[in-house]
């Protein structure tokens, strides 16, 4: 259902943006993904070869790993560097209220009542979208 409105948009995404999307897709799923699965996941009419090239580039940067024991050709995200990043992030952001003030956070807090309203919204949206 989602992403159907975005077919044919792939041409307008830059190589760097596609790299981010592939990396995000790998992190979002629990298991390793093959290029074909990634192609299906991010959609937007992306060519298989493009996905392959992007994965190669991410691999060269050490951001993804080839799945050694699993299915051939599957990739998974490199966890070690990301764990160090998480450590640094928590050190930087959790020190006090000040440092965070300058940042753009995607979302902030919710009250219990707001939470209920958003849950209803998602439920309604899902039903309509299905």
């Amino acid at each position: 259902m989602a992403g159907t409105g975005s077919r044919g948009r792939a041409e307008r995404r830059s190589a760097g943006e596609l790299e981010s999307e592939v990396l995000a897709a790998l992190w979002a799923t629990e298991r390793p993904l093959t290029p074909a699965e990634i192609q299906h996941e991010i959609g937007g009419g992306l060519a298989y070869n493009t996905v392959h090239t992007i994965l190669k580039r991410l691999y060269d940067k050490g951001l993804v790993l080839r799945d050694a024991d699993g299915r051939r050709g599957a990739y998974r995200p490199a966890k070690n560097a990301a764990e160090l990043t998480a450590q640094a992030m928590h050190e930087a952001l959790d020190r006090g209220p000040d440092p965070i003030a300058a940042l753009q956070q995607f979302v902030t807090g919710l009250s219990a009542e707001e939470e209920r309203a958003l849950r209803e919204l998602l439920a309604g949206d899902g039903a309509r979208g299905a």
Partner: peptide, 29 residues
């Protein structure tokens, strides 16, 4: 803040837009 963030980005490979932190706290900035 800027110093802390620069430290965060310093170790990342060049030309990478997205930095993923392996954390259970949902956050994006």
């Amino acid at each position: 803040t800027r110093r802390a963030l620069r430290r965060l980005t310093a170790g990342q490979p060049a030309g990478t837009e997205l930095i993923v932190a392996a954390s259970e706290v949902p956050r994006a900035l």
